[in-house]
């Protein structure tokens, strides 16, 4: 197996809020291999988006970052500002959920692509224009030459997301981070964008990290999955293995709560209670208060993420109690 391009080790991100420190990401470690698509799944407040922003260096003091973000061997958390400018938005690009707010409304899409091109590569104006047109064509925007002069508001939702991907690709990234890239889109457009990302990944030889709350999106796009809950990774595995045989009570609960598995119009199997409040986490496993498998052992200490099967790691005290072929619908 080849070396990972990105290797996150013990990453912790703590925000300073008026009501005290809030740890949004807690001791998160994972690898991204070349050409791989990693999915980070979790509900709101699980820390999945903050993890991406931490990697990109988008969080500034007083937010505190600890651990390592190793990019091709170099720890980005220690990198100089100048170096970060080169890496973030260059070798690593990011796309967001809301293209309308991520795109600059007073610059044309073409200008925004050119800006990124000049930033990262020496090229003539003519070359840059040709390249920008090529990029728009690459992401499937019809009549790219004309659309270079359009503003974000002249694009539809799906086209805007395509334009944002084109801007992200302008720097020839080796890793694309996608933060809920299709959550704001309709299902037929989501389908188009996901297929586009997969095609671009193969065509350009990138790795991709997709952050999402939708297990269906994970199933259809990812190779590896990391499930996050209350700031921590609670389970990682190859996607089919995770969906077929989850080894963390939270992952299992999440899969079971989805409609489609059981008989129509029969009660679903929800996870009881509400997602936890990060500023008031229980001791031990954060999922314990909602967990049907909970025992005293869960409340003693935070269970570590350990290998429970080949390629599968879980932070569940009772991973061996969970039913074994799980419910993949």
């Amino acid at each position: 197996m080849s070396d990972p391009v990105l290797s996150v080790r013990n990453l912790s991100t703590t925000f300073a809020t008026p009501r005290g420190a809030l740890q949004a990401v807690d001791d998160v470690s994972f690898d991204v291999l070349p050409g791989e698509v990693l999915g980070i799944v979790g509900e709101s407040g699980s820390g999945k988006s903050v993890t991406l922003r931490s990697i990109m260096g988008l969080l500034r003091p007083p937010t505190r970052l600890e651990g390592e973000v190793r990019w091709l061997g170099e720890n980005l958390l220690r990198a100089s500002r100048e170096r970060m400018y080169k890496v973030a938005g260059g070798e690593i690009s990011i796309i967001f959920q809301e293209p309308m707010t991520a795109l600059n409304p007073v610059l044309t899409v073409g200008e925004q692509i050119l800006e990124s091109l000049y930033e990262h590569e020496r090229m003539s104006k003519k070359q840059a224009k040709a390249r920008a047109e090529e990029l728009l064509a690459l992401v499937g925007i019809p009549s790219p030459r004309e659309r270079l002069g359009d503003y974000a508001h002249q694009f539809s939702g799906g086209m805007r997301q395509r334009a944002m991907i084109a801007i992200a690709l302008a720097s020839n990234p080796k890793l694309l981070l996608a933060d809920e890239p299709t959550t704001a889109l309709d299902v037929t457009i989501q389908d188009q964008i996901l297929k586009l990302l997969l095609r671009l990944k193969d065509q350009l030889g990138m790795s991709v990290v997709i952050v999402t709350h939708d297990l269906g999106v994970v199933a259809q796009t990812c190779d590896q999955v990391a499930v996050m809950y209350a700031g921590r990774i609670v389970e990682t595995a190859p996607v089919s293995q995770l969906l077929r045989s989850p080894r963390h009570a939270y992952t299992l609960g999440l899969l079971r709560s989805l409609p489609g598995g059981g008989v129509r119009r029969q009660p679903l199997l929800p996870i009881l209670g509400a997602p936890p409040n990060l500023s008031d986490l229980p001791p031990g496993c954060a999922f314990a208060p909602r967990c049907p498998y909970v025992s005293d052992a869960c409340r003693v200490r935070v269970p570590p993420l350990v290998e429970v099967a080949p390629e599968q790691r879980s932070a569940c005290v009772h991973h061996d109690l969970l039913p074994r072929p799980g419910v993949a619908a």
Binding site: S156, T188, Q190, D191, Q192, G216, Q220, A329
Partner: peptide
């Protein structure tokens, strides 16, 4: 048909590379 095909299935084995429907919603 397109709507059903576009909804992401929970089974990774049903992964396809072709989008279910082309084009965008007309205004």
């Amino acid at each position: 048909q397109a709507l059903l095909a576009a909804a992401p299935d929970l089974d990774p084995a049903k992964k396809s590379v072709v989008a279910a429907v082309r084009g965008e919603l007309p205004s």
